[in-house]
Each structure stands twice: as C-alpha cells, then as structure tokens.
C-alpha cells in the first residue's frame, strides 16, 4: 500500500472557496488573518489541539537540549531494573514504572522509555517537518510555475506530476535505499549513519510527496490568475516576478498551511512504517518508529512498553490531522464538517 493515505478531501474547489472567502472578507475591513484567528478562537476543539501540537513541538525542540543536560537519558542501561533470567523484562509492576522512570524501562537494557520517546518526537518531527518543507516547497514551485505559465511548460510539468504519481512510493523508498544512501556517502561525502539515512528518508518522502499538492496549487493559480486583481496588476505594468511574489503567493498561503499540517502526520506514520521495514534511521537512535518496532514484540509481556510508543505516534498523527481540519474550517467556513 502506499504510505500516504488516499487523496485528502481537499478538492481544488474547496481550496478555491477558501481563497475566495479570504478575498471577500476584505470588504469588511478585516484582514484575512484577523478573521481566521477569530474563527479559530471560537473553535474550542481546534484550540485544544493546537495546544497539544505546540506541546509536542516544544517537546521535540527541547529534548536534545535536555538529554545533553542529562535530564533525559535515552541511552544508558539500568541492568539492575531488569530481570535477567526472565527474558530481560523490567522488574516491578507495570513495566518498571517509577518516579525515575514514569513510563517504565526498556526490556533487556533498562533504558528509560520516556526519554527515548521524547527524543523520538524530536527525530520523527524533524523528519516530518523537513520532508514537508521539501514537498510543499517543490509542490508550490511547480504548481505556481505550471499554473501561471500555462502552455507547453504547464503541459510538461503536469506530465511530470502524473509521472511521479505512478511510482509505487513505499517500494521505491525501500528499493532505492541501498543505492541512494551509498551514493550520498560515497559521492557527496555525507557522513554515514543517522545523517545519511535521515537525509535519504527526508529526500525520498519529499520527492514523492509533492505532486498532489502541486496539482492543488496549479489549479488554484489557474483560477486566481484570471481574477481582477492580477489583471489590474498586469495592466499597471507589474512584471512577472512581482506578480508571483506580491499577488500570487499571498493568496496561496491557505492551501499551503492546510496541506503542510496534513502532510506532517502522513510522514510521521511513514517514518514508523519504514522503521518497521528496516529503512531509515537505524537503532539505537530512538526515532518513534525505532522504539515502536522494538516495543510491538512485547504486546503481552510488557503492556506499558507496548502501548506508549504507539500512543505517542497516534497522538501526534491524530492531533496534526485534527489541526489540519480545524485550519481548513477556519480558512474555509463553507466546507461542511
């Protein structure tokens, strides 16, 4: 199956209406931002989700600092906390839960589960954010160029989009991994290990993740460029670059924002799935996928360890998805959900 879920319900006209709405609000004398913020503030669920997501982000940003300071210790083993004769299961109840180790310890090594998960958020979010930036950047660029230029360039870029969509993404990620990682390290001097593997995952997720978004942007641009304010700018003698930068891009931020929020959870799930298949950043580096891959073995013998890594991923994915929905509602009140 493809790692990405089926095309999201962001049909082009929905986005178009979002932009239209934004345009229409100008009459009321409020900036679109003000309006969106107002709507968001009224949506309590989304505000709550936003807090969760921000909390996750802060967690991700501070984890490396905290682990350098020694507050989090994701790597040190605690042999005295595991039962060496019983398959290395944590001693004590509930997977070795204690004040020192609020989510217990890893069977076999006695590493602190919470530390590994918190640092895992850093890695997984890092991968997801980078891949999203790459995909959105590429998608915006191709979409804007195709939509604005029309003609042969548009034709070929659209074919490029079609072409990229035909490749089986998950399979390509696995199949190209040995070749491309070797290429990165041997030809481009990228340091081996986490950096090369991480770059590979980000690169391939991004390179296969942009086309659907490029399509959205393209049709968005197609509809905007026919509108009066572009006409006006053109008749006033604005050159193409000015039109791109000043007139087009500001009208694309709604789909960009929505899509970024919806792509990120896909990439977080993708990282986990790839870890399961043995591609990407390798253990003992604790990406959420790596921790989960170990923990799923313990479904029956250590439920705490089994459950929490999956829960971390689920919360991240769920809250980002809901945030994306909330943003869509705020940007596009006509869309009904």
């Amino acid at each position: 199956m493809s790692i990405q879920p089926p095309a999201e319900d962001l049909s082009t006209d929905v986005v178009a209406t979002a932009a239209e709405e934004v345009g229409a609000t100008k009459i009321e004398g409020r900036t679109p931002w003000q309006l969106v913020r107002m709507r968001l503030r009224r949506d309590k669920t989304t505000m709550f989700i936003l807090v969760v997501v921000l909390f996750g982000l802060i967690m991700g940003i501070t984890a490396p600092i905290l682990s350098r300071l020694g507050v989090l210790d994701p790597f040190s083993g605690n042999r005295e906390l595991i039962d060496v004769t019983g398959g290395g299961l944590p001693l004590g109840r509930f997977g070795g839960v204690s004040w020192a180790h609020p989510l217990g310890v890893v069977p076999g090594t006695g590493q602190d589960v919470l530390s590994r998960l918190v640092l895992g958020v850093t890695y997984s979010l890092g991968i997801a954010v980078s891949a999203t930036l790459l995909a959105i950047g590429l998608g915006t660029f191709v979409g804007v160029v195709a939509g604005y230029s029309r003609g042969w360039l548009d034709f070929w870029l659209s074919r490029l989009i079609d072409l990229t969509l035909t490749f089986p993404q998950t399979l390509m990620l696995i199949a190209l991994s040995p070749i491309v990682v070797r290429l990165l390290t041997d030809r481009f001097g990228v340091p081996e290990g986490d950096i090369a593997n991480g770059m590979y995952v980000v690169g391939v997720l991004g390179l296969f993740g942009w086309p659907i978004f490029a399509r959205v942007i393209r049709s968005q641009v197609l509809s905007i460029r026919e509108r009066e304010f572009i006409e006006a700018a053109r008749s006033l003698g604005a050159n193409n670059r000015r039109i791109y930068a000043k007139e087009l891009l500001p009208n694309l931020w709604a789909p960009i924002l929505i899509y970024s929020t919806l792509l990120m959870p896909q990439f977080i799930s993708a990282e986990a799935a790839l870890s399961y298949l043995g591609v990407g950043i390798k253990p003992p580096t604790p990406t959420l996928g790596n921790v989960l891959r170990d923990s799923i073995q313990y479904a029956e013998s250590d439920f705490i360890f089994f459950f929490f890594p999956a829960l971390f991923i689920a919360i991240l994915v769920l809250s980002l998805n809901l945030l994306g929905d909330g943003l869509r509602d705020a940007l596009d009140p006509k869309a009904d959900r």
Binding site: P265, L292, A299, N321
Partner: peptide, 19 residues
Amino acid sequence: ALIFYAFPTFFIGLFLYKF
C-alpha cells in the same frame, strides 16, 4: 475512524494477529 487511522498499520495488523 480517525483514531484507527492514527495508529500505524503494522501496529494494528500485529495487534489483530496476536490478540
């Protein structure tokens, strides 16, 4: 549906299989 969607497929699959 959203909650099921949030858990990775291999996690759900293994859970169903084992339990």
